[in-house]
Structure formats: C-alpha cells, structure tokens
Amino acid sequence: MEPEQASGSGVRSVRRALDILSLLTEEQPVVPLRTVVEATGLPKTTVVRLVQTLEQYGLLWATEAGYMAGPGLWRWAYLAASSWQLPPETVDLLRGLVARHGETVNLMIRRDVQRVCVAQQESPRPLRHVVRIGDELPLWAGASSKVLLSGADDALLSRIALLSPHGEGHAAQLRAWSDEAERAGFAVSHGERESGLTAVAVPIRAAGGGVAASLSLSGPSSRMTDDLIACFTADLLDVSARIAAEGFDHPLVPRS
C-alpha cells in the first residue's frame, strides 16, 4: 500500500504545482500568494512549499507583487517553439485569410477525444471568437470536430459522445456529421457548442491522404451568414491545399 500511496501523493503534488502555474496568464502575469491560496483552495503552508519548489527549479520567480513566470521556463518555451511553431509561409497564409474575411482563423488537430488549437490568427474586430493556442476543446460539436473525426472508428465516437451533454446516443450524430464532412469536403456549425457562434472548417490532408488538421474561420453568426459560407469554404480549401503542398507537419499529427 505504501508505494501506491506515495505514487498518488506524488501525482497530486504535480497536479497542484501545475494548477499554480496555470494561474499565470497574459492578463495576469504576476500572481500574489493570497490569490494562489484562494484559487487552489490549499492551505497556505502547502502553497508556500509548492511555490518554493517551483522557484528552486526556476519555474516561478518571486517579486514584491507576487509570483511571475521564472527564467527556467525559457528552455521549455524554446523547445516548444521549435517543435510546434508553423513555418512563416503557413502563418502568412493564415493572416491572409483574416485580412480577406475579417474573422478568426484556427488550425486544430485531434488529440484523442479532444481537439487542440495549434495556431490562430485573431479577427481584428472587437466582437470575435477567441481560442488560445494550446487550448483543448471537445470533439462532440463544432465544424472542426466534424472534419477531424473523418474516418474515426465507432469506439472513439462512443467515447466522445459519453463526454457530451447528449450522452452515448450522440455517437450516431457524430458519425453522420463526420461522414457528411468527408463527402462535402468541409463542415459548418451554427451555435452547436457556443450560442451565436458560426464556424466553417476544411481538412488539411497529410501526405498519405488522411486528415492531419482542420482549418477554420469562426465568428459571430450575425456576420457569418449563409450567403457567405460558399466564399469562406472556397478560400479555406485553397489555403488548405497550399498548406498541405508545403508538407504540414506537427508533433501530434498521426503518422501515415
């Protein structure tokens, strides 16, 4: 029993440390100790012990105002950037889509039962759809999900359906959506996950022909009206083909 307890305690400590690091955001680059205690619900003594350990590894840096990201994260940031950043040519293509249509562009891949945003260019408009790079979103709804589930087996669809608000029976709808996206070459969603949000997505194909990622435009449904969907889709398909021709590669993309 002791090894199991030690292992469980270790995992719990890791999760608590990651919870503390996750409090740091662009909007909140410095977090006071009191905020950490309140946000985690942990005893102050436990929080102090955790932040001191994170400081020792350079992952946090203590200031008079609180804790900020430590210099030790630079090494990890460099490794992440070298593995995850898209080529400049691909980034330019995404920026071009935003410039032409004024809506947010997302590039997503599937990671088990989630979809992960690996690149984004935000709409310049005040009212816009925002998903941060690295965010994980559910696969049970949305245009990107329909595209990414192309070729998914029944077991995967059932697992995703169980995580949805609709229950296991939603697997049949997921199958219908993914089959339609495969036939049409694109997918559209209107308020399936967020009310008032519309998205159009197309696949980015890997060298072997499978779906490596989804490329989408998303924004308020009031702007992304049905009469514009064909225009959005045509441009997305053109850009997707150009990205695929450059050889889209990513750590989480299944190898064919």
Rank of each mutant, 00 (worst) to 15 (best):
A206M: 05
A206N: 14
A206R: 12
A207F: 07
A207K: 13
G208N: 15
G208M: 01
G209K: 04
G209Q: 07
G210Y: 01
G210Q: 13
V211C: 06
A212W: 01
A212S: 10
A212Q: 02
A213M: 05
A213I: 08
A213D: 11
A213Y: 05
A213Q: 08
S214Q: 07
L215T: 08
L215D: 09
L215F: 13
L215G: 06
L215I: 10
S216L: 07
S216W: 07
S216Y: 05
L217G: 06
L217M: 10
L217N: 03
S218F: 09
S218E: 14
S218R: 07
S218Q: 14
S218N: 14
G219R: 09
G219C: 11
G219Q: 12
P220Y: 12
P220C: 13
S221W: 01
S221T: 15
S221F: 02
S221Y: 02
S221L: 01
S221D: 00
S221K: 04
R223G: 04
R223M: 02
M224G: 04
M224Y: 04
T225I: 12
T225H: 05
D226C: 01
D226N: 10
D227W: 08
D227P: 02
L228H: 12
L228G: 00
I229W: 08
I229N: 06
I229H: 08
I229P: 02
I229Y: 04
A230G: 01
C231A: 14
F232G: 01
F232V: 00
A234Q: 13
A234D: 11
A234V: 03
D235W: 01
D235P: 00
D235R: 14
D235Y: 00
L236I: 11
L236V: 10
L236Y: 12
L237N: 01
D238K: 10
D238T: 09
D238I: 00
D238N: 01
D238Q: 11
D238V: 03
V239T: 14
V239L: 05
V239Y: 06
V239R: 13
S240C: 10
S240V: 06
S240N: 08
A241S: 15
A241R: 15
R242N: 05
R242F: 02
R242E: 14
R242G: 03
I243L: 04
I243F: 06
I243Y: 02
A244E: 14
A244K: 01
A245C: 10
A245Q: 15
A245F: 07
G247F: 11
G247A: 07
G247Y: 09
G247V: 09
F248T: 06
D249K: 15
D249E: 15
H250M: 09
H250Q: 15
H250S: 12
P251M: 05
P251D: 12
L252S: 09
V253C: 04
V253E: 04
V253W: 04
P254H: 06
P254W: 05
P254T: 06
R255V: 12
